[in-house]
Amino acid sequence: MMASIQKRPNGSWRARYRDDEGKEHARHFDRKIDGQRWLDGVTAGMVTGTYVSPAAGKVTLTAFYLIWAERQVWETGTRRAMDLSVRSCSFEGVELRALKRSHVESWIKAMSAAGLAPLTIHGRVRNVRSVLRAAVRDRALSVDPSEGVSLPRKRRADMAMDIPTPEDVRRLYDGAEDWFRPVVALAAFAGLRLGEVNGLQLADINFLPRTISVLRQVQRTPGMAIEIRSPKYGSERVIPVADSLLLILSAHVENVGVYGDDNWILPGRDGGPIWPRTIAYHWDRLTARLDLNGVRLHDLRHFYASGLIASGCDVVTVQRALGHRSASVTLNTYSHLWPNADDRTRSASQSLMDGALAIPADSLRTAGA
């Protein structure tokens, strides 16, 4: 960096420097020492990588986001969530150079006061933080003001997750209309997401190898009817499935049939796939009729995951079956369902006693009767 300080005819001092792009920046000071301190700060910023050019810092958060977002390879849903997060941000119009931690804290406080769920607040802050970190990397912002801010506590996974009982699932399956039963079965016994159920075609059901290929999902987007694209997080996968599920699907194909030239499993519209809101409408009717209003379709995916874990499947197996982008996502979501050290110790001890003493568990319960 080229820098200098010169005294002007009026007695003030002119400090100037050229940045890495050759642009000159200057400021005037009454005292030489103040000019030198300013240049020292600029030099330190360039050395540590926190330097921000005056012009870059004048850009607002929204202005930076709109330019940065155009360079990102996002799915439609991701762009929609990012747009919403930035629009809802109370400091979207503030210049980057003026952003402070207090801006972020006030925004979080306002969202909490408005009654937004902690999970929603975490998601919006995470999205805006990704923009702020991008601004730091582009040297439009010296530090991320959202770093280390306090967020409202999320519910523990084991308390927030509602897993239907086998009896609930049986009632939902038995109570569903014939054409709707595959929705219940695919979610509960293959872990498919709503959009993935909508996107299933006959060719995706592999009867001989006993697998289902998840190759697409159907999503409704604002301003559009529906969009057919790859599964969430690019989670195309092949799921080994039970013979009983294949029998259900086979009976559905024979008795209800498939739809359109692409042989959609569920009846759609104009030769295309079924709309997500159609599924949601019939799901709400089904749960209301059975007095299971609190059960969401996505809860059947949790039911499937819990069954895999209870059967001894490892993290990677569950991750692949559910189409999670990483094993850490699976652990963050379902770690409370895996047996802990106490459970394993207790089970091992019981096995030792069963083998050595042949004491049936029932005798322990009736010994004091």
Rank of each mutant, 00 (worst) to 15 (best):
L286C: 05
L286H: 08
L286S: 06
T287P: 03
A288C: 05
R289S: 12
R289T: 05
L290G: 03
D291P: 02
L292G: 02
G294Y: 15
G294V: 01
V295P: 06
V295Q: 07
V295T: 11
H298T: 03
D299R: 08
D299C: 05
L300V: 08
R301A: 05
R301F: 09
H302P: 00
H302V: 02
H302D: 01
F303K: 06
F303L: 10
Y304A: 04
A305H: 09
G307K: 09
G307Y: 08
G307W: 08
I309K: 09
I309S: 07
A310F: 12
A310T: 00
A310W: 13
S311L: 10
G312D: 07
D314R: 12
D314C: 03
D314P: 08
V315I: 10
V316I: 11
V316H: 15
V318D: 07
V318L: 10
A321V: 01
A321G: 08
L322K: 05
L322I: 02
G323V: 08
G323K: 06
H324R: 13
R325H: 15
S326W: 14
S328G: 10
V329Q: 09
V329K: 03
V329G: 04
T330M: 03
L331F: 14
N332C: 04
T333V: 06
T333D: 00
Y334N: 00
Y334I: 00
Y334P: 00
Y334T: 00
S335I: 01
H336N: 04
H336K: 04
L337Y: 05
L337R: 06
W338T: 05
W338K: 11
W338C: 05
P339W: 13
P339G: 11
P339E: 05
N340L: 10
